[in-house]
């Protein structure tokens, strides 16, 4: 039962994004296949060089970079959202697969979740 968690809210502004990351890592910890798809303003989670110290928060960049080690199958981002926010090679975290057709991508999963 492969789960896809879709993150469409920008980082740091609310806790929903962070909770969805915890959900993904917990699923992976119990050997449940899980992948993450970032769409809309959610693609900003995948920017390099995030420095959240000034707003007293931990940067999520480290967890995302280690996603594969934690057992997350895939980190995907919507191509058009990346263009909209000017994210590409050099500004996106390594190992992110950009996808163009969200419907096709979602159909690959048994269970799709939009947290928050």
């Amino acid at each position: 039962m492969h789960t896809l968690i879709v993150i469409d809210r920008p980082p740091y502004g609310s806790w929903s994004g962070r909770e969805s990351l915890d959900m993904a890592f917990s699923l992976a910890a119990f050997d449940q296949p899980v992948s993450l798809l970032f769409v809309g303003e959610g693609v900003l989670w995948l920017s390099q060089r995030q420095d959240a110290s000034a707003i007293a928060q931990k940067s999520v960049e480290r967890n995302l970079k280690a996603a594969a080690i934690f057992g997350i199958e895939a980190l995907m981002a919507d191509q058009s959202a990346c263009q909209r926010f000017g994210l590409g090679d050099g500004t996106l975290i390594d190992g992110v697969e950009t996808v163009t057709d969200l419907r096709v991508t979602m159909r690959r999963y048994d269970h799709v979740v939009f947290p928050g």
Partner: peptide, 20 residues
Amino acid sequence: SSIEVPSPLYALEGDIQARA
């Protein structure tokens, strides 16, 4: 890039850095 922002416009440094 899909929206027009007004001017004059200010933004908080800490939030900008957090989001790179």
